[in-house]
Computed example of a mutant assay.
Amino acid sequence: MSGHEPVPAGRRPAVPLSRLAAPSGTLVAVGAAFAYVGAVDPGEPGHYPVCPLLHFTGIYCPGCGGLRSAHAVAHGDLATALGMNALAVAGFAAFAVFMVFWVVRVLRSRPVTVPLRTSHWWALGALALAFTVVRNLPLGAALAP
């Protein structure tokens, strides 16, 4: 087939392996990062830098506890991961869903688009801000790492 001829019904052209390079590379990189965080405990002092906001102000940022959360996920401990940083766990889950979406779209030879509007970014920012404020209040102590 020259590429201009119609594909017979019920048959799809083979997906070139090169189209899977980007999602595969992303999975390898993220997998390596999780493997490293799983092997090198962020709860042990001296392995990772300290959060500057927490260090200088005592305020938990939206990412505080994220590495410890990733460590718990790498060890299959979802309860501890949620206790360390529930927002990070939601981000890990959203990433996993996106990766499945990406691979399926590539395998079906479809474009990969995620139509995020400005309002979506504002909503994500508001969620991160609300999470930050609540986890630093006495009533949100359960959200603090």
Rank of each mutant, 00 (worst) to 15 (best):
L116S: 02
T80G: 12
L129K: 03
V104H: 00
C51L: 04
P52D: 00
L67E: 02
D77E: 11
V89N: 01
L17G: 07
L124N: 13
G63P: 02
A86C: 11
F56G: 07
L54C: 08
L87G: 00
V104N: 04
A96L: 09
V106N: 08
M99W: 12
D77A: 09
G25S: 06
H75P: 03
L20N: 02
A130I: 07
V40N: 03
C64Q: 00
V97K: 04
L17T: 05
A96G: 11
A94V: 04
Y48H: 13
S18H: 15
L116N: 03
R105T: 00
V30R: 08
L82A: 03
C51T: 07
A123E: 01
V89T: 06
L116W: 08
W122Y: 15
R19Q: 15
L127H: 00
P62S: 10
P115I: 04
A90T: 10
S18L: 13
G63S: 07
M99D: 04
M84L: 12
C51G: 03
F101Q: 14
L87K: 03
V37W: 04
N85T: 02
T113A: 15
L27T: 08
R68G: 09
L129T: 14
H120K: 10
L20A: 00
E44Q: 13
A39V: 10
C61V: 10
R19G: 03
A29G: 11
V28N: 01
G63L: 14
P111G: 02
A79D: 14
P62W: 01
A86R: 07
F101A: 12
A35Y: 13
L67K: 05
G38P: 11
A79C: 13
P62C: 07
V114D: 07
S18W: 12
